[in-house]
Design a protein around this nucleic acid. Structure first.
Length: 911
RNA sequence: GGUCGCAUAGCUCAGCUGGUUAGAGCGCACGGUUCACAUCCGUGAGGUCGUAGGUUCGAGUCCUACUGCGACCACCA
């Protein structure tokens, strides 16, 4: 003992060593045996695996802190808590990063070839891939690092294969030629979710398509050369080169005679038919639509219905191909757009052009405008998977917090479309499909193990499908693939299903919904009971933090400046239910003030307490022979209340409220009141029994506060907790991390003590207010008069007879009698106790008179309101008895107070 | 176009099952060197709870409409 703590908390000096110690002692490790043997219930959170190339940002900071709070809290509750870490190979994202790297060397991935390129990516991943996991340690995440997983690990890869094969065998995986979202820059297919709509300003160009031959009975405008024409509109004029029809609504009277006729497709000379289809909205534009089956999803569908051919006019990188007139060949699509418009204009075939705002899909990785493209891809049939997932949310097997996300989730599942899972990338899980290359065979094999010969013809000339799977095809298995599935293990039965899934709402569809589907399909159970969707971290202009905007906050910088605890507390305190979090990247001092200040306060309270309890043993305040005083009983009762409150809030994922509750107990009650109340009792010269009780209570209350705060601020709480003395005969864990959570109801409330201290605290507060209001010199001792003193206050004044003197500088208290005369300040406490402070020579009598007048008016209003209510027969008859009773008491008390006030006012007037 | 959400102090937000005088932090103002802490302590000002109706004995809380924001989804060329 004896080493005094420095007056300022220096997180840097304790965090790293503490973390290493926790890890070395195995506190992070979850043991399946303890669960399987029934000794403990599990509590499992799998991390949303960050991209392997990612660097920690505030979004991760918030997300992982929430997870760690839940994990640490449950661990303290005695659960076998597993926080399972890992990373995602992030197909396109990672491939793009490495492509950019080799571009600096003047190389493309084609230059390297597939094998060398993939090796290159592996090298990069091995070199940098643990960065983000290391950073999670810095913010205190208690992950079980012995179970760190990567989506491309052999085990997880075999899970991917198993799932692909099973779905194929069930007929839920199929291959087909469809129109899909294609990124012309990444040169791969994308799922619908990966194509993000972004609003942009374009032009809606109305084109004139001349009729091949005159049609009778249809009123159509004519060109100068006398030919009739129909007008069609498009935002992408270049696609007209791939038109294979024009469509009108079957009941559109304007065009009835036109169906079956042909128009000439300008610039190409091709002749294309007019078809009728209900998809066309007669009220939009001219009511006629150009049909480009190869470049528009709706047109693709319509063409299938009408057996129309497609005509692909673009290369994979979105340049015009050989299917267009020579003058447009090889032009980029946007360049072609301008040239086609020009050419049509010269021919007098542009009817008009208007500005148009519309939403077009962009690649979610590189933001290039997606080009719909017909190609041969692999898909998962989603309806059969979505139905059980819907049922699970409807019967409450999965709950969403905040609840409103449930509707979004269900809406998506109800309208689910098939999932395009093949990607024309090199980095990822290769599709486990082989094609026989023997000229007469061509057999396709879908296999768990790499085949060495064709199952049909025996040829060894096999070629594996060139494509890889969507990254999310491995992520959706994360809750069980990380536990070793499909191999049998102790981990699966011990830790599946898990409990909470904490993530950002952006990946509700990408990941959460699909995990629920996969869990139900392959494990027969939902992967977690609760889905908590945390808010988004934004800057003061509410913009999302991003690298490109440069408005991010580096969590490690915050840790360096204020410590991990300050970071954690700040984000947890800011995480209201369903709210975004606003932080100012320009002003870290203010942004993290809440957490930083609290850490400092905890540290200093710890200093004070340790300073006073060092060197001697302390008792357990609940032991029979400890003569607890009022303040002691009060703070112990408040500690019990805080435990109940914090627990309740955490159970409801109300992080802000949980943080607020600990904060209020710690700072507002323990530090501001209890510590001040007992300062004189812990001194060496204090009365020994009283001193012993105060020291015992101080230690017990601080212990409780540290436990409640530990999930949010693990470092500072453990560091201080370890130095607290242990009551004789008691033992304690080596770390707060594995100590027990104060269960609500574990200690009884003391309602008498709370009422008595409440009255005393209000009295002290009121005296302080009056002193401040009348500018009483801080050191000046005063005398007060009390009348109509409540029983609670009487008891409190007896028990804490020095509190008024110490906390409000009151040197004498006169109770009852008629000393309350002359000029002075008057106040009535909530329990009806009247306070009179004679401040002769110190107060402004006029001002006080004004104040009392205002007070009188206020009381009048309140009295009136109460009387009106009591006058209401319905209220009196129907409202609960205690409510009516309270109203009566209130009215009586208002009337009482009013009378007394009037007297005082009169007295003041005469003074 | 569809679905959902939000509107409470200067700012950011709590207010959970409708029930004492609607709260917190920050900011602001005033005062404070008492041996835990100025990253602190004490005190204060500041609210017709978006608008209009309704339900109820009672509404910040429930219902309806309106206004203003926002999110997600969507095939109007």
């Amino acid at each position: 003992m004896g080493t005094t703590l420095p007056p300022r908390y220096d997180p840097g000096s304790i965090e790293k060593a503490l973390y290493e110690e926790w890890e070395e002692r195995g506190y992070f490790h979850a043991d399946p045996q303890r669960v399987l043997e029934g000794r403990r219930d599990s509590y499992v959170i799998v991390i949303p695996p960050p991209n392997v190339t990612a660097v920690l940002h505030m979004g991760h900071g918030l997300n992982n802190t929430i997870q760690d709070v839940l994990i640490r809290w449950r661990r303290m509750q005695g659960r076998e808590a597993l926080y399972l870490p890992g990373t995602d190979h992030a197909g396109i994202a990672t491939q793009n990063v490495v492509e950019r790297l080799i571009a600096d060397e003047g190389l493309t991935r084609e230059d390297l070839g597939r094998e060398a390129f993939v090796e290159r990516v592996w090298a990069f991943v091995e070199e940098t891939g643990s960065t983000i996991l290391e950073q999670l340690r810095a913010i205190g995440c208690s992950c079980d690092w012995t179970r760190t997983r990567f989506t491309l690990d052999p085990g997880l890869s075999s899970a991917v294969r198993e799932v692909f094969v099973r779905l194929y065998e069930k007929g839920l995986v199929y291959r087909g030629e469809y129109i899909i979202n294609w990124c012309p820059r990444c040169l791969t297919a994308l799922s619908d979710e990966e194509a993000e709509g972004e609003e942009s300003n374009g032009r809606l160009v109305h084109l004139r398509y001349p009729l091949r031959e005159p049609v009778a009975g249809v009123e159509l405008p004519t060109l100068p050369d006398g030919r009739q024409y129909v007008v069609v509109a498009t935002t992408r004029p270049e696609t007209m080169l791939g038109d294979t029809a024009v469509a009108v609504h079957p009941e559109d009277e304007r065009y009835l005679g036109l169906v079956g006729a042909h128009v000439e497709l300008p610039l190409t000379g091709r002749s294309i038919p007019v078809v009728a289809d209900a998809y066309v909205d007669p009220s939009f534009g001219s009511g006629a639509v150009k049909i480009t089956p190869s470049h528009d999803p709706n047109d693709f569908e319509l063409a299938r219905r009408h057996d129309l051919p497609g005509r692909n006019v673009m290369t994979p990188d979105a340049r015009m191909n050989e299917n267009v007139p020579p003058e447009f060949q090889d032009l980029d699509r946007f360049e072609a757009r301008a040239r086609v418009t020009d050419a049509l204009s010269k021919l007098g075939l542009i009817d008009r052009t208007e500005d148009h705002t519309y939403t077009i899909p962009h690649c979610y990785r590189c933001h290039t405008v997606v080009e719909p493209r017909v190609s041969l891809q692999w898909f998962v049939r989603m309806k059969p998977l979505a139905e059980p997932a819907l049922a699970a949310s409807r019967d409450g097997r999965v709950r969403f917090t905040p609840e409103r996300h449930l509707a979004v989730y269900e809406n998506w599942l109800e309208n689910i479309r098939d999932w395009c899972i093949s990607r024309q990338l090199w980095w990822g899980h290769r599709i486990p499909v082989w094609y026989c290359r023997a000229s007469t065979c061509g057999h396709m094999m879908v296999a768990r193990e790499d085949p060495d010969r064709c199952a049909q013809c025996g040829s060894t000339d096999l070629e594996q499908d060139q494509d890889v799977l969507d990254t999310w095809f491995s992520s959706w298995l994360w809750p069980f693939s990380t536990l070793g599935w499909p191999e049998t293990s102790d981990d699966v039965p011990a830790f599946y299903p898990g409990h909470a899934l904490v993530t950002a709402q952006e990946i509700l569809f990408f990941w959460v919904a699909r995990m629920i589907m996969a869990g139900l399909e392959f494990m027969g159970e939902v992967p977690f009971r609760d889905v908590y969707l945390n808010g988004t971290v934004r800057d003061m202009q509410r913009r999302k933090m991003s690298k490109s905007l440069g408005n991010g906050i580096d969590p490690l910088e915050v840790v360096r400046l204020y410590g991990a605890d300050a970071l954690r507390y700040t984000v947890i305190d800011a995480q209201g239910l369903g709210t975004d979090i606003l932080m100012d990247p320009e002003n870290l001092d203010d942004t993290f003030a809440t957490g930083r200040n609290l850490a400092n306060k905890v540290w200093n309270a710890g200093r004070f307490i340790l300073m006073n309890v060092e060197g001697e043993s302390v008792a357990d305040p609940r032991a029979d022979d400890v003569p607890l005083e009022l303040a002691d009983r009060w703070i112990l009762s408040r500690a019990a209340a805080a435990a109940a409150e914090v627990t309740r809030q955490l159970e409801g994922f109300r992080f802000h409220e949980a943080a607020d509750a600990v904060y209020h107990f710690f700072w507002g009650e323990l530090a501001d009141w209890y510590v001040e109340l007992v300062k004189h009792r812990v001194r060496d010269d204090a009365e020994p029994a009283s001193r012993a009780a105060a020291r015992a209570t101080l230690v017990a209350a601080f212990d409780q506060a540290l436990r409640l705060l530990h999930p949010i601020m693990p470092f500072i709480t453990d560091a201080l907790w370890r130095r607290l003395p242990v009551p004789a005969g008691r033992t304690r864990e080596a770390s707060l991390m594995i100590a027990s959570w104060p269960e609500p109801g574990g200690a009884p409330r003391d309602h008498d003590a709370e009422a008595q201290m409440g009255a005393l605290m209000e009295l002290i507060g009121t005296i302080r207010t009056l002193r401040s209001e009348y500018d009483a010199p801080p050191a000046a001792l005063i005398r007060i008069h009390l009348a109509n003193v409540s029983g609670a206050l009487q008891a409190a004044l007896r028990a804490e007879d020095r509190a008024l003197h110490r906390l409000a500088r009151v040197e004498q208290v006169d109770i009852g009698g008629n000393g309350a005369q002359g000029a002075g300040a008057h106040a009535v406490l909530r329990d009806g106790t009247e306070l009179f402070v004679p401040l002769a020579g110190m107060i402004d009598v006029d001002r006080e008179r004004e104040r009392l007048t205002r007070e009188l008016q206020r009381l009048d209003q309140q009295l009136q309101a109460a009387l009106v209510r009591l006058d209401n027969q319905d209220f009196v008859r129907r409202a609960p008895v205690d409510v009516v009773e309270r109203e009566r008491e209130k009215a009586a008390s208002f009337r009482d107070q009013r009378e007394r006030l009037a007297v005082k006012l009169a007295a003041l007037g005469e003074a």
